[in-house]
Write a protein that binds this DNA or RNA. Sequence first.
DNA 1: CGATGCCTTGAATGAAATCAAGGCAGGTGG
DNA 2: CCACCTGCCTTGATTTCATTCAAGGCATCG
Lengths: 252, 252
Amino acid sequence: MANPKPIYPPRVPCIRCPIRRLESFRDFSPPELDFVQDFKVAELVADPGNSIVVEGERHPQLYTVLTGWGFRYKILEDGRRQILNYLLPGDLIGLQGNIMLEMQHSAEALTKMTLCVFERERLMTMYQHHPSLAYDITWLAAREESMLDEHLLSIGRRSAMERAAYLLVFLHSRAMTTGNLAQGKSTPLPLTQQHVADTLGLSLVHTNKTLRKLADQGLIRWLDRGCEIVDATGLHQIAQWRPPAESKRPFI
Amino acid sequence: MANPKPIYPPRVPCIRCPIRRLESFRDFSPPELDFVQDFKVAELVADPGNSIVVEGERHPQLYTVLTGWGFRYKILEDGRRQILNYLLPGDLIGLQGNIMLEMQHSAEALTKMTLCVFERERLMTMYQHHPSLAYDITWLAAREESMLDEHLLSIGRRSAMERAAYLLVFLHSRAMTTGNLAQGKSTPLPLTQQHVADTLGLSLVHTNKTLRKLADQGLIRWLDRGCEIVDATGLHQIAQWRPPAESKRPFI
DNA sequence: CGATGCCTTGAATGAAATCAAGGCAGGTGG
DNA sequence: CCACCTGCCTTGATTTCATTCAAGGCATCG
């Protein structure tokens, strides 16, 4: 799990940032770009299963996902794990460990990931000199919050079937806008059924049976270590949920 | 439910803001105070059951809770309701309706509430002229996020008993630092069992049985329309959770 | 070739939902 | 003042959904 994560000096200059190329992200102004370029202190590479941040530890850094998928989670003392949300390109990690710097959750890589590393210390400077970027950070926090709201509704009030449909179509829609850089077409969601179970608050066995039903109905196909969405519309209907119509979103 | 909410011109000048008097909140600098005073456009009073914001509607305002308790929630098309979090003095409402202004959740008063009303439009001005206040807003968003994380863990992975214990002791600890202005001693939590059920993702009947057990064990006492915490430590143990040690927190 | 990780399935058990009543206080209208 | 309603809490019986237990399959990897 918690393995060495190689840290490199920044190799991808922000001007050639793979995220900037994407349709769904907003452009930086030149001064903003300069600032962020300078704000970025390193680049981090994580392999599947590597920890990015660990609950209870101090992380003086913030991270932005450049490529790859990960997830945030918490565990109870006796080992029960709850996945809180997934991390895709453009997502910011580590804001919540405010002030005390002590992380309240852990994060782990699902696929090979690259991340931009920022110094939390210098965040105040950004707020002073680039209010628009500060606003973006708030925007990102608010966005995360509304995803968590929806997850809570899901776990609290949707049935196993509905929950599973919601999760898969939620991830699918995120993957569509930010997910698989370069790969073009929709790559399967890089999860195991254990991840799904720990996200939905269900047991592995019951998750398996639920996914089986969705597959039997021709809505999804379960692969080696991932899930292919066959009928997104059908899943929307089951979940009673549609992805929000997002206009260009910010990132740091 | 959705009833008229009287809006008044600001009556409580920020300098005599009841929240500022509280131990656990940080002080404003004089220029900050001036700005916020000017930022505040009105005051709103809501009675128990009144809606503060409504999912799907446009709310060009932001609110800060001055006094009283409320809650945020979402409902599915068929009426199933999930309470997302509770609103206490110092909490900011309405951030998440970013950009499109369309609220993603509703909020309702639990007790009589007074709220400060701000214009969302002028938020950018705040970011430009008062980076420290901008930082505070981010801080508040991050704080909300970590509460939601904990709620997710709770609903996803804790048993009914543990969940109930967690919720009650969570609210108790919030009430201790911000809750009952003026009243001095710990007022009972102003909830019905239906609220608890909708927060925990349980049915009303099962919630009742669970609370009964907690009461039988002498951990709580259930009153008319509220809950009295008798043994917070006992609840902590059941929930496997302790309240975070919060230093002075910001508010707007 | 034995391990290990991931998916699958059936059977037994348990936790929580649903169904069905009833109690009790406070509020209202006859 | 009493009769009736309404909102909130309580309890038992039954059913449903999800967990746990137990196995087995099937790839991949050292």
